[in-house]
């Protein structure tokens, strides 16, 4: 059943509506467990659109196996998705920096509070993000150190390549996931692929994982075949390579390949002079799990992340 979570009158003859689709299983709505699948907080991150579609399609095709409740929120920032912008277009504001919001706050904060209120009481939530449109990222779950102990058992089930446990910055306290975790809704953040596109293989991988998680929780009544355990990484396993000079980045190493320390990663070139202004190599042995796709770089632009160390 499709319902509005929030509806706000825009300036002229239109409403911004944030919708969810609720699937109720054989156990009804009483004591049944509930999972929320949310995405589209960042309007230019579209990998989750495919995941929502495929998840809804598979549930509809096999609805008799559904025991609990699945709430799918494909577009938490519908106007951002429409405009292809990361933030909420009329406020120029990152929606994932305003949670938990407040009922009587500014419009964006009011919207955030309504979303939290709607998800509160769920047994689990998965918030699906893509990497920026500039990057390509292996499918991964990101957990803050504070939540890792509680969330890792769930995160392992999502069929992602990697679970990255990171030290969280204070700004992350205003995210949807932090606010929900604070309110007792275990919330996992998935990050995969890239902005402004859909990587179907990653999406299929995550949908399998979501069914696995739901089966484990008793929401989905069908066993899931075995799958490889993800690599568990912390910040100390991750090495970043950044541009040291401006120019055009031309990678030579392939995404999702294993590199040796010193192996070439790519070069930064100057289109005007024909010179190679910098050559970059891998700082360690490891897996190239993040790679830049957008060629124009400034000093500091992220080019690659490599997962080194034992990482498990």
């Amino acid at each position: 059943m499709v319902e509005n979570v929030v509806s706000i009158g825009l300036f002229v003859d239109e409403r911004m509506e944030i919708k969810k689709n609720r699937f109720v299983g054989t156990e009804g709505t009483g004591k049944a467990k509930r999972i929320c699948i949310a995405t589209g907080i960042h309007g230019d991150e579209l990998e989750g659109q495919y995941v929502c579609w495929e998840l809804a399609r598979r549930i509809r095709a096999d609805i008799s196996r559904l025991k609990g409740i699945v709430d799918i929120y494909p577009a938490l920032n519908p106007l951002g998705i429409d405009a292809g912008t990361r933030g909420i277009p009329m406020f120029d504001l990152d929606m994932n920096r305003i949670f938990p919001g407040s009922e009587d706050g500014a419009v964006a904060e009011h919207v955030a509070a309504k979303i939290i209120a709607d998800m509160e009481g769920a047994d689990l939530c998965v918030d699906i993000h893509s990497s920026s449109p500039h990057m390509r990222e292996l499918p991964q779950v990101r957990l803050s150190q504070a939540t890792a102990k509680q969330l890792l058992p769930h995160a392992r089930l999502l069929h992602m390549d990697l679970v990255w446990i990171h030290a969280s910055a204070s700004t992350s306290h205003a995210t949807l996931s932090h606010s929900l975790n604070q309110r007792g809704v275990p919330t996992l953040v998935v990050e995969m692929g890239g902005g402004m596109r859909i990587t179907r293989s990653y999406g299929d991988q995550l949908v399998d994982g979501l069914f696995h998680l739901m089966a484990e929780q008793g929401i989905w009544g069908c066993p899931v075949p075995p799958f490889p355990d993800p690599v568990i990484a912390t910040d100390s396993h991750v090495r970043k390579v950044r541009a040291d000079v401006p120019g055009l980045f031309l990678p030579v190493a392939g995404h999702n390949t294993r590199l040796k320390a010193g192996e070439p990663l790519g070069k930064i070139v100057d289109a005007l002079t024909g010179e190679v202004v910098s050559t970059l190599s891998s700082p360690c042995d490891g897996l190239l799990f993040t790679l830049r796709e957008y060629p124009v770089v400034y000093p500091g632009s992220l080019l690659a992340r490599i997962l080194g160390g034992e990482g498990r």
Partner: peptide, 8 residues
Amino acid sequence: PLVMENEG
């Protein structure tokens, strides 16, 4: 000159 519903 335009306003949204619920806007401060």
